[in-house]
């Protein structure tokens, strides 16, 4: 008798919130995945560098220094200098925040709009669904970079327009995933129960459907940032994104292209930086996906 009372009281103190519990399980699984953790740590490192890095570099990323043009890597210029004599390492550090800014904000915008469209299409179904998803299909039919290229060509080249372009081509990806998950959740009895209580569509969508479809959205967002970074660099490389002298990696790569044979380091280091960021997000995203998948046991 006494024992049961003790048990009951210990249970009393441990209130398990399934949401927190899910996050804990996910974290536990993620921790065992070394490659994903490496990706995650790299992402954190990049974020820290983008914030505090510029304060630690002594050189101006944009000021030309004709006396030290096209120098190879040395103790003074770690990654060498470019055709204007600017320190490439400094420029990469300064470019980090631009790259991450484009990646995060474009995916954030694309995610919000895409989730809204997907959830509305999935929840209301019928004609709303048909119209919205056919529009999304049209977007999906374009290769991503081509669509972004078209949008930037119309809006003009600037970092903000690149963000808009990437956001727009991220929308259909989110919309599709969210629509599918919404269709599955909408049919559950607890949705009918709140409907029978007289809940508004707004409440059902945001209080009951959205919290239950977050996992695929999180996974997609992480993986999508990698694509966004790559596309943004691609656009800048083509001269449609960040304009010189902005230390954007894609633009730096484009500038280095002319000196490719004699001074490969000018193109190599910005290229490596892009690879590192994309790889980090991809690895981490894959890890998160595996961790959130209940079918994969750790």
């Amino acid at each position: 008798m006494a024992e049961t009372t003790v048990n009951a009281s210990t249970q009393e103190t441990k209130r398990i919130n399934p949401q927190i519990e899910n996050m804990k399980t996910m974290w536990r699984k993620l921790k065992t995945n070394r490659i994903a953790m490496a990706g995650g740590i790299l992402i954190l490192f990049f974020i820290v560098v983008s914030i505090i890095g510029p304060y630690f570099t002594s050189l101006d990323p944009n000021a030309p220094d004709v006396s030290s043009r096209l120098q190879g890597p040395s103790s003074e210029h770690w990654f060498g200098t470019d055709h204007h004599g600017r320190d490439i390492f400094t420029r990469i550090i300064h470019g980090m925040s631009i790259t991450l800014y484009i990646g995060f904000s474009s995916v954030a915008i694309g995610m919000v709009v895409g989730v809204l469209i997907g959830i509305i299409a999935g929840y209301y179904g019928k004609r709303t669904d048909a119209i919205l998803m056919r529009i999304m299909d049209v977007f999906l039919a374009f290769p991503g970079i081509l669509l972004a290229l078209g949008i930037v060509a119309v809006l003009g080249g600037s970092i903000n327009n690149v963000i808009i372009a990437i956001a727009i081509f991220s929308i259909p990806v989110f919309a599709r995933i969210v629509r599918g998950s919404t269709l599955a959740v909408r049919k559950l009895e607890y949705i009918d129960a709140v409907r029978a209580l007289g809940a508004s569509d707004f409440r059902i969508i945001f209080r009951h459907i959205l919290p239950n479809i977050l996992s695929p959205i999180i996974v997609q967002a992480t993986l999508r940032i990698a694509t966004a970074v790559l596309t943004a660099s691609g656009l800048s490389f083509l001269g449609l994104g960040a304009q010189p002298p902005t230390p954007e990696w894609g633009a730096m790569l484009a500038a280095g292209r002319n000196y490719m044979w004699e001074h490969p380091h000018i193109a190599l280091f910005p290229g490596l930086a892009i690879v590192a960021v994309v790889l980090a997000f991809n690895l981490f995203g894959d890890g998160v996906r595996d961790a959130l998948d209940p079918k994969i046991k750790s």
Partner: peptide, 23 residues
Amino acid sequence: EMRKMRKDLQIIFQDPYASINPR
């Protein structure tokens, strides 16, 4: 109008595992 009316008409479902939001 129907939403207001729902106050008077309620339903208890079959599957107690599916009829409550797990969160």
